[in-house]
Design a protein around this nucleic acid. Structure first.
Lengths: 132, 132
DNA sequence: TTGATAACAGTAATGATTATTAAATATTTT
DNA sequence: AAAATATTTAATAATCATTACTGTTATCAA
């Protein structure tokens, strides 16, 4: 462990925040997490939510995704996956597309750019919104 | 033309903003555009830049892209393309990957989601930053 | 040319996020 | 187990990007 690493003690708040994100499928926002836990932990502060989200990010336990114009959303799914974003209601669903790297390896072989990861989002209308 | 449609008059400011975005390859931010045009139009206001960016978006003349944690960037390239984002210096480069839709058409054929467009961003280290 | 209204500059307001601080809580040491 | 030490918390203030408001100016059709 390097000198710069911080040892995080456990806290009820952080545990609850993580559990909530892990249980949700719809990539909650900070304010949504705050409102959801407010009932169980009335003293909870929005700043605490943000601080703990950053700690969880740093620990690699969650991911952050932000879509144009909206606030950040958080996700406890660590495996590589992609998103379906409804442009009507803002709902975010996950999809898994295997072998995405195949398509870019070829196209990028003459570019001098070292790719560490990628992100692929699909925008459109979800089933629910299409119905009404 | 529907009653709700607005007729846009031409304005020097909006034209300059659009020209600037079109000439740049590096997806400028609102504040960068503002600073760049300030010399030519000293009276320019940052609010005017934002308002006109939104009008240009509405007209479909530019696109908006925002990468995690940073401010929005704008792009006058309307054709479908993808991004290479350097995680060190924040530079954004374009790449064109043909036939991306092939990989998801198959994976999504049982999902009831109507895709209108997609976005694919690659993160990593650019040539310049790799050198130093 | 003129009347209607979009666009302007300037500024205030908003919304999301981060920083600060004193008090509460968790770990380590005695 | 109690004291010492370090971290987390809640509350609040600060910051940054973006949008809304206000009074003035510019555009354009009649």
């Amino acid at each position: 462990m390097s000198v710069n690493d911080v040892v995080y003690r456990k806290s009820r708040q952080r545990q609850k925040i993580y559990d909530l994100i892990k249980d949700m499928q719809n990539h909650p926002t900070a304010i949504w997490i705050y409102n959801s836990l407010k009932e169980e932990i009335p003293s909870l502060s929005l700043g605490t939510v943000y601080r703990n989200l950053n700690i969880l990010l740093e620990q690699g336990l969650i991911h952050k995704v932000s879509f144009d114009g909206n606030c950040d959303r958080f996700d406890a799914r660590i495996e590589s996956h992609h998103h379906l974003i409804c442009e009507k209601c803002g709902a975010v669903d996950d999809i898994f597309l295997p072998r995405v790297s195949d398509i870019y390896k070829d196209a990028l072989k003459d570019k001098k750019f070292k790719i560490t990861h990628h992100r692929m989002d699909f925008f459109g209308i979800c089933e629910k919104c299409a119905k009404k």
